[in-house]
Computed example of a mutant assay.
Amino acid sequence: MKITGACHCGDITYEAELDPARFGICHCTDCQVTSASAFRTIAVVKQAEFRLLSGTPKTYVKEAESGNRRALTFCSTCGAGLWATDEKGESGIVNLRAGTITERRDLTPRYEIWCSSAMPWLARFDGTERHDKGFT
């Protein structure tokens, strides 16, 4: 499905092709902190099917629990998180932040990753495939 997205202020816009089966939830501690929430909802798209339409995002590189270095992209004007990739962009994958997707109401999470870090007070989501760590 074709999706579009933008940061809160609209300075940065994008479009992508998304397989709805690649829409999920990440409970890792990094996503909890960087989203300022109990989890982050992500849409995984192929880099070749992602296109930045406007704006120049800022990038922050962090080391994940897995040891992988991740480039987190955000708007320097409004601060909205937009997407993440591996540091050098070699994986060919972009993890879009679901809150920036215009069509987010049409998507349902299909999986949850890093459930071992999930908040104990958080209710389970119905119909998701659950993984204690990331995908192996």
Rank of each mutant, 00 (worst) to 15 (best):
K62M: 12
C28L: 07
L72W: 11
T108R: 12
N68H: 13
T59W: 07
T56I: 11
G92D: 07
W114L: 05
F74H: 11
F50A: 01
F135V: 05
C7M: 01
V94S: 06
A118C: 06
C115P: 00
K2F: 07
L52E: 05
A80W: 06
K58T: 14
S54V: 10
T77F: 08
A16H: 01
R69W: 09
F135M: 07
G79Y: 08
C9T: 10
A38N: 09
T136C: 12
V61H: 05
A48G: 13
L18D: 00
A48L: 12
T34M: 12
T128S: 04
M1D: 08
P120R: 11
S116D: 09
G67H: 00
C28H: 03
Q32F: 02
E63P: 05
E49P: 01
T108S: 15
H27P: 00
I101V: 15
T41W: 04
I3E: 02
A48W: 04
I25H: 06
R97D: 12
W83M: 08
G92N: 10
A64Q: 11
C26D: 10
Y111T: 08
Y14N: 02
I25Y: 04
D106V: 02
I93K: 13
R40M: 15
S91A: 13
A118Y: 01
W83I: 01
L82P: 00
D86S: 04
E129V: 13
G127R: 07
Y60K: 10
T136K: 14
K62A: 08
G89C: 07
K46R: 14
K58N: 14
E112F: 02
C31M: 07
A6W: 03
E90W: 03
V33C: 04
T56A: 11
C75E: 04
A48D: 14
K2D: 08
R104L: 13
I3T: 07
I3V: 15
A80E: 14
S91H: 03
M1W: 05
R104P: 05
E87Y: 00
E65S: 13
D126T: 12
V61D: 06
